[in-house]
């Protein structure tokens, strides 16, 4: 019963998986967007990528909340906080309606963690629980979060929620629990597998196509090309946070 045997068992499983991925990637012209950014399970998130989103508010349907529903299903929030008041329940993503006071122009857009490059929430966290992965995804390491809520005070976008009660039956890919803070993590578990975040997928399934996900550091990615062509604004750009989530038509 040597250790290497166990390692080999894993390696066999692992090789099989990477072979499958490689097989898909052989034909670059026809691969789906989904596998274009695949990394193998053993790879670490790399600073060669920076994941981002581009949201076209003109395409965003005012009554539609598919992205919110998809996020809830994917990460199992939005139910189960039965003791908490509405003000206390977590929201990772929300639809915001904005009305121009002068023109009366009404817009609707999804708002979640903006995955700031210079993230205030990361800077203020005393323990380093609020953290940014190498690939730009900002998230909370609940193992060392002490629940001080300083990050919630610091976030300009109200992207974070504190869990006010005991939870159970979490998704394996989305652990969350009492006394810690959480927020959108761009579906890191999906991104690591080469998939789009759940909200982006839902938006395209609903035929709205208002959300685009991709690698901001890859000049040839769809998101970079679109950003170069038509630009994309940051919410509260004056704060200079270089957000990973950008908007068009604000």
């Amino acid at each position: 019963m040597s250790n290497s045997n166990h390692t080999n068992t894993y390696r066999r499983k692992f090789l099989a998986q990477s072979a499958a991925v490689a097989g898909l990637a052989i034909a670059p012209g026809i691969i789906l967007n989904q596998v274009a950014h695949a990394k193998s399970d053993a790879d670490k998130a790399s600073s060669a990528n920076r994941w981002g989103m581009l949201i076209d508010t003109n395409k965003c349907n005012k009554g539609c909340t598919d992205c919110v529903t998809a996020c809830k299903t994917e990460n199992a929030w939005g139910a189960g906080e039965t003791h908490s008041s509405e003000e206390q329940q977590a929201q990772w993503i929300r639809k915001v309606t904005i009305t121009d006071k002068q023109t009366g122009h009404v817009q609707s857009l999804p708002l979640m963690c903006q995955h700031c490059e210079t993230a205030p929430c990361v800077d203020v966290c005393p323990t380093g629980a609020s953290m940014k992965r190498e690939d730009g995804i900002v998230q909370v390491d609940k193992h060392i979060c002490i629940g001080c809520r300083y990050c919630m005070m610091a976030c300009p976008y109200k992207a974070r929620s504190f869990i006010h009660e005991k939870l159970e039956l979490q998704k394996p890919t989305a652990p969350r629990g009492i006394g810690t803070v959480e927020s959108c993590n761009m579906c890191a578990h999906r991104v690591d597998k080469g998939q789009d975040p759940a909200c982006v997928e839902a938006c395209s399934n609903a035929q709205h196509g208002a959300m685009l996900f991709g690698d901001l550091k890859d000049a040839n990615s769809a998101i970079s090309i679109e950003l170069k062509k038509h630009g994309g604004e940051q919410i509260r750009a004056d704060l200079g946070l270089n957000t990973g989530v950008r908007y068009q038509g604000l």
Binding site: Y10, K13, F14, K39, D41, A42, D43, K44, A45, M131, R133, E134, D135, Q139, D141, H143, A188, H189, D192, K193
Partner: peptide
Amino acid sequence: MREGVRTK
């Protein structure tokens, strides 16, 4: 959690 390694 911190590095995105997803092996089992």
